[in-house]
Amino acid sequence: MSVEMRDTGDARAGSRAGRIAALADRRAFRPESIAEAAAERGRRPALLGETGRLMLVAADHPARGALAAGGDPLAMADRGELLDRLCTALERPGVDGVLATPDVVEDLLLLGVLEGKTVIGSMNRGGLTGASFEIDDRFTAYSADAIAASRLDGGKVLLRVDDDDPATARTLESCARAVSALAGHGLMAMVEPFIARRSGGRVRNDLSPEAMIRAISIASGLGATSAHTWLKVPVVQDMARVMAASTLPALLLGGEVADDQRAALDGWRRAMRLPTVRGLVVGRSLLYPANGDVAGAVDAAVEIL
């Protein structure tokens, strides 16, 4: 593949090594081509298409140092392999787009695979996995202005509320500002809320229905307006009661690679019947399935929609 890879019309052409070499050349010799690709990208006319559903693939985990998937602590460490899996997922019918940090979005822009796709930029990645400052989730990736300038379709924030960690207040305030700023641009603000606690030196999310109800209630009130706010929530017990906590549209997150993928699919299918649930945002569960079949895992998830 030549350095002008966007002009070939085939992001999958050539070897993985060739694609990575071409990306490296573009970044080294023509960094301005990233902004050019963003400016030229064809955008979808609306977030929701005719189906009224949205299917996004998430790839913002590496920026928090979260590289594990399916028991492999470094599953997402090879960027070439990750991009291969993302390209496979994005070309499957029914996949609407991607949620990622600037580095991944820009790789995909240069590969030319984001035409007509919904692209959500991940914003606060400073709460590194396992760090003592994990709850102090600083905004180290996209800003609302950068998302608008890059012609993306929205931004995503992670909000973990730990009542015992004073850093929660800073994260709450920063997330509220991001929601307001995105709304000011008329862009989706996707909020992923959890009640979190530190246990055994690690931050763990409380996935009880009561904790998720509280988290959703807090997230729904962030910012100067909720007109453009969406929620990103896990499937937990008693989802009907959990989702009754807000009228905001919601997307279901996939989480870790499930031991029982059929049970995970059944949980998504049941939750999709709820009135506020509009789709899925799934990352490692689809990109690194236990059987290695990315296309099959994506197709099974799309079938639910």
Score class of each variant (00 low, 15 high):
Asp163Ser: 14
Arg53Gly: 00
Leu110Glu: 14
Glu210Thr: 14
Ala13Cys: 08
Leu83Pro: 13
Ala58Trp: 13
Val113Glu: 02
Gly223Tyr: 05
Leu74Pro: 00
Lys117Glu: 10
Leu159Ile: 12
Pro73Leu: 03
Gly279Asn: 09
Gly14Gln: 10
Ala245Ser: 15
Gly9Arg: 04
Val119Arg: 02
Val161Pro: 07
His228Arg: 01
Gly42Glu: 13
Gly127Trp: 03
Ala131Ile: 03
Ala178Leu: 11
Asp145Gly: 15
Met272Gly: 12
Thr225Ile: 05
Pro289Glu: 04
Met5Leu: 13
Asp293Glu: 11
Ala196Ser: 06
Gly223Asn: 08
Pro31Tyr: 05
Leu54Ser: 05
Arg204Glu: 14
Leu83Trp: 11
Ala219Gly: 14
Arg85Phe: 12
Pro234Asn: 02
Leu253Ser: 09
Arg278Asn: 07
Ala176Asn: 11
Ala13His: 03
Ile147Asn: 04
Ala258Ile: 04
Ser2Asn: 15
Arg12Ser: 07
Leu67Glu: 02
Leu287His: 07
Leu83Ala: 14
Ala263His: 12
Gly186Gln: 07
Arg138Pro: 07
Ser143Gly: 05
Met188Tyr: 03
Leu23Asn: 02
Gly292Tyr: 00
Gly18Thr: 08
Asp145Thr: 15
Ser174Lys: 10
Leu207Ala: 00
Ser217Leu: 04
Leu99Ala: 08
Ile304Gln: 04
Leu110Val: 07
Arg284Thr: 14
Glu106Trp: 09
Gly184Asp: 11
Ser132Val: 15
Pro31Ala: 05
Val161Thr: 06
Val203Asn: 01
Ala69Trp: 02
Leu159Val: 13
Ile216Phe: 07
Asp206Ile: 01
Asp60Ser: 03
Leu109Ser: 05
Pro249Leu: 00
Ala37Trp: 05
Arg204Phe: 01
Leu54Thr: 02
Leu152Thr: 09
Ser15Val: 13
Leu280Cys: 08
Val235Ile: 07
Ala58Gln: 08
Asp293Thr: 08
Arg177Pro: 03
Gly292Glu: 01
